[in-house]
């Protein structure tokens, strides 16, 4: 067999093999690509179409052009929800990044018990969101909860937290700061990727700790920072849904109505799939814009790095 193939020429053999490899590759990719089409691409197409339809999921869709978009523009709640979502992003993402970086810097060194500490720092991240929401709902209970008990214990004022439009969103931001395991692990890995020589050289040149941090560590982990920021932005939409759905339902007085909660209510409460789709597009455009901005920054950073 080998002989005969050999006679046909190695080139042809390799080509056949490669073709086979490809076929195998595509075969193995089938479920994944099927999932991509069914779970991502097809919904994206249908949902784009629904933006221009009136559809209550019972009767067939009716094409209405831009009616849904105009309805959203008229509705004050859209602006409130977008504002709330942006407020959350603007506070939560930077603080989460900072927290993850601090954790990574603190826990990167080998010292006794560091494995335990890393596990503990990651632990809140794995708590299921339904349970996690209840923990904080209890912790921030204005009268009986431990947070206000601690505050009163040290003589500080005890706010009403989720009952007060001024502080409600802060609770969501605060509780998100404990679930930063993902960013922490990525930054931990990034820190360990930095070659020791850089620091050795810096030390020879007489650089101090702060300088090393600002000149070596931070620039080198910056791309990872942006990656986590992108992921944070995207996931915060899901995060604000489950937490606000379980904790406040949008109260007090719309202070915690975030965009995904509005999508859910519009579609699954009021049967308005058309405006729901238009709202989803708002979510998508918003997160897309933010991620796009970060990508541009990333490109600038890496361009500088090249130089």
């Amino acid at each position: 067999m080998e002989d005969r193939l050999g006679a046909l020429g190695g080139q042809a053999l390799r080509r056949t093999r490669r073709a086979w490899g490809r076929a195998d590759g595509w075969l193995l990719l089938t479920p994944y690509l099927g999932g991509v089409v069914l779970l991502f691409l097809l919904p994206a197409v249908v949902s784009t179409a629904l933006i221009f339809a009136r559809y209550d999921a019972l009767a067939p869709p009716v094409w209405v052009g831009l009616e849904n978009v105009n309805a959203l523009r008229r509705e004050n709640l859209t602006g409130t929800a977008a504002g709330n979502s942006l407020y959350f992003l603007a506070l939560a993402v930077p603080f989460r990044l900072l927290g993850a970086l601090l954790l990574a810097l603190l826990l990167q060194r080998r010292q006794p018990g560091v494995g335990f500490l890393r596990a503990v720092a990651y632990l809140p991240t794995v708590i299921p969101e339904a349970a996690y929401a209840l923990i904080w709902l209890w912790a921030f209970n204005p009268l009986y909860g431990p947070v206000n008990a601690l505050l009163r214990g040290v003589g500080l004022p005890a706010p009403s937290w989720l009952a007060d439009p001024g502080t409600a969103k802060l609770v969501f931001v605060f509780m998100s700061l404990f679930q930063i395991g993902e960013g922490f692990v990525v930054l931990l890995a990034a820190l360990q990727e930095i070659p020791t020589e850089y620091y050795d050289t810096a030390e020879v040149l007489g650089a101090g700790g702060t300088q090393m941090l600002s000149r070596i560590t931070l620039p080198l982990v910056a791309p990872w920072f942006l990656l986590i920021a992108c992921r944070d932005i995207v996931l915060s939409f899901q995060y604000t849904f489950t937490t606000s759905y379980l904790m406040t339902g949008g109260d007090p007085y719309y202070a915690t109505v975030f965009l995904p909660l509005l999508v859910y209510e519009e579609a699954f409460d009021r049967f308005r799939f058309g405006t729901g789709s238009a709202l989803m597009a708002v979510v998508f455009v918003l997160s897309g814009t933010l991620v796009g901005i970060l990508c541009v920054i990333h490109r600038h950073l890496s361009a500088e790095h090249e130089r």
Binding site: T30, P31, G34, G35, V37, L38, L42, A49
Partner: peptide, 24 residues
């Protein structure tokens, strides 16, 4: 038109479900 899309998804889904089960 959406109908056709659904139909396509349905076919794909069935194929892919059975393929997945078979292969695993």
């Amino acid at each position: 038109m959406t109908r056709t899309l659904y139909r396509a998804a349905l076919g794909l889904g069935t194929f892919w479900l059975s393929a997945g089960l078979l292969l695993s």
